Computed example of a mutant assay.
Amino acid sequence: MRKFLAWAKRGLFVLTPLAVFAAASASAADPSATTRAALQRDLGLTSSQLSQYLKVERLAAAQERQMAQAQGERYAGSWLERKANGDYQLVVATTSIQPQRATADVEFRNVRHSAAALRASKGEIDDLVARGARVPGGVYGWFVDPRTNSVTVNVAPGAQRHAIGFVAASGADVDTLRFQTMASAPMPLATFKGGSEYLSYDGSGYWYCSVGFAVTRQGAKGFATAGHCGNAGDTAFVAVNRRTVSQIGAFAASNFPNSDRAWVQVDNSHTLLPVVDGYGKGDITVRGSTVAPIGAAVCRSGRTTGLRCGTIEAYNVSVQYPDATVNGMTQVKVCAEGGDSGGSFITGAGQAQGVLSGGNYSCKGKQANLATSYFQPINPLLQAYGLTLTVSP
């Protein structure tokens, strides 16, 4: 949790606990029963539909890069898409008008703007903010969306006029822009409450937050988490009971805003396992950190809301929190609540994806269907701090 965000320290996102990670599988080809059940529940899939989805997910992982290289400068992105009959397919967008040969589970789709053009347009908005421009209230973030072949700007109801002026000042290509209403503002997620897997202490108070993935660095061990959970040097604890805490280590590095990443180095007396907490249904093994495609299903594990699954909507999203912009986030259609911050996202094949940064709606009632969450991708986090993800042999 960052000190300059006074609103956060005063109770808007004080952290709650989450026990280790999200959801994975017993093997890359066969998700665990826990993960399958969560995917079927949250994505509305039958067992056979889930099996077909996993087949297409593996196809995407194996062929997506080659297809992008084959399209070259005409490549406009790709994603997993559910068809009307419930089956999934890999869609590859291209600006080429030439007929494309594809297998049964792949569709080539002609679009107007290339991926490079969309990235350049988003980059203009990012540069504007980097130069010190103020993001107007009601502008919640922006990202390249290959599914709509646009740079999509998330805005509050009634805020589109201000958003138009903002992006116009950036010089972004207006033909690439799309405005999407988001009824609730995202914010870094946390809850101020006692009893958690770990707490950060900044010298003035304790803040509950969530463990992400086990990591190592040059013989030192620890875990990845969200940057807004603590500054470098802040100490980390676990709650022994309501009145007693025990120190486990300290924040070795932390970055927020711009990114939302950190890692906590723990003392040698503690054990960190390459698993995700299954909340009474059996721990789930972490296998690696291969990036999943847009449209892929991921699951998030949190002490506050348990195991929740959704689909990836966009990468490299710039998210506007109150008084802070974070870049490079991944947007997921899944709910989360205070206390899930810093927790892990993982695919059904056991591939670590990232740690929870923030979101908007809760997981209660109909709000869960409206919710969007954001995570800090794990691979850039590992690279930034020279960390190695702990995986099962």
Rank of each mutant, 00 (worst) to 15 (best):
E73W: 03
V245H: 11
V355K: 04
F375M: 05
V56W: 10
G227H: 02
K366N: 11
G348E: 09
K83L: 15
N149D: 05
N110W: 08
A133L: 00
Y206S: 05
A84S: 14
A250T: 12
R147S: 15
M182R: 12
L18S: 15
E337H: 03
E73S: 15
D173F: 11
T16Y: 04
E107L: 13
L59K: 09
I294D: 04
R308A: 13
R308V: 15
E64G: 06
A120F: 02
S362D: 08
A120Q: 12
A130W: 00
A70M: 02
A93Q: 15
F21G: 14
V14G: 12
D323W: 04
G141R: 02
D126S: 08
I164T: 12
A130I: 01
A102R: 11
A253P: 11
V286G: 03
T94D: 04
K221G: 02
A117F: 04
P257W: 03
I284V: 01
C335T: 00
C363W: 07
G365A: 13
Y315H: 14
L382I: 14
G194C: 01
V106W: 05
Y315M: 10
I346A: 12
P393N: 13
S78D: 05
I125L: 09
G350L: 07
G249I: 09
R58H: 14
L199Y: 07
A296H: 03
I378F: 09
A120S: 14
L118Y: 00
D340K: 01
E197Y: 01
G171K: 06
I248Y: 05
R119W: 00
S254Y: 07
F251K: 08
A6I: 07
N255L: 11
D283H: 01
G219C: 06
A116E: 06
E57V: 05
S51Y: 00
V332K: 02
G295F: 07
G233T: 01
L90G: 08
A24M: 07
T95C: 13
L15R: 05
V326C: 04
A130V: 00
W142I: 05
P186N: 03
F4P: 08
R243H: 13
G359F: 06
F108K: 07
A384G: 04
A33F: 07
R36T: 09
S78Y: 02
F21C: 06
T372R: 07
Q383D: 14
F108G: 10
G358L: 11
A368M: 09
E124W: 01
G386V: 05
V56A: 10
A38Y: 04
L118T: 02
P380L: 06
R82H: 11
A220H: 15
